[in-house]
């Protein structure tokens, strides 16, 4: 019986994922988590929603670098970030309505990751009706700075809450899609989906 240490190392133990899930739920309930996140399925691939008690903080595509986003949220908002599927129910139902082509309920947002200029741009963008598009220049003008088309493009590209804040409704002056943080395919899917929704209405 020389290798007791090795046998201890190899002792099997029960699965602990149940305990981790209960921890996540309790952390939200008692309020010690400042940011909760969970993945949610959607027609444009899995999305990861990050929420705070104020509302939706960020929405990430599966192609995004989630580790980098988490690091940035830890530094700018709070490192008390916990995975908790129950915390993103409102976002889940908003996305269900949106992708189901139904009336979308009001969704509270946490704008902590949005800069003041970016906020003006995104507010202007949020005024574009589904199924329609505006150019970068038009949105720059709506945001109060008609000459800032490039800066507007950058502000939209760094939109922490895509889909919900519809930066995909902004296109180049010649009608081409130009760019999208989630890739042009996703931008096209979102615009096609919204046009379909509009014609059905």
């Amino acid at each position: 019986m020389s290798n007791v240490a090795g046998r201890i190392r190899n002792l099997p133990s029960d699965d602990h994922t149940g305990a981790l899930n209960r921890f996540g739920r309790r952390a939200i309930e008692e309020g010690s988590a400042r940011v909760a996140y969970s993945a949610v399925e959607s027609p444009i691939g899995d999305l990861t929603a990050l929420v705070t008690p104020q509302g939706l903080l960020a929405l990430a595509f599966e192609t995004d670098d989630l580790d980098r986003i988490m690091d940035s949220v830890a530094a700018k908002v709070s490192p008390r970030i916990v995975r908790a599927p129950s915390a993103i129910e409102r976002v889940r139902s908003w996305l269900d309505s949106y992708f189901g082509g139904r009336y979308v309920p009001e969704l509270r947002l946490d704008r902590s990751l949005i800069t003041p200029f970016q906020d003006r741009v995104l507010v202007a963008t949020a005024g574009i009706p589904p199924g329609e598009v505006r150019t970068y220049g038009q949105v720059a003008a709506l945001a109060g700075n008609p000459k800032a088309a490039r800066a507007t493009g950058r502000a939209l590209g760094a939109n922490p809450i895509p889909v919900v804040l519809p930066c995909h409704r902004v296109v180049a002056a010649d009608g081409s899609l130009r760019g999208y943080a989630g890739g042009l395919d996703r931008k096209r899917l979102l615009l096609d989906h919204e046009r379909g929704t509009t014609t059905r209405r």
Binding site: S13, H16, A19, L20, M70, D71, V73, P79, I81, V82
Partner: peptide, 19 residues
């Protein structure tokens, strides 16, 4: 000091902590 997201600590250390 920049702290990592708490969930990352959980994912890294939960198994040895549990054992």
């Amino acid at each position: 000091m920049n702290l990592p997201p708490f969930q990352r600590l959980v994912d890294q250390h939960a198994r040895p902590l549990h054992r």
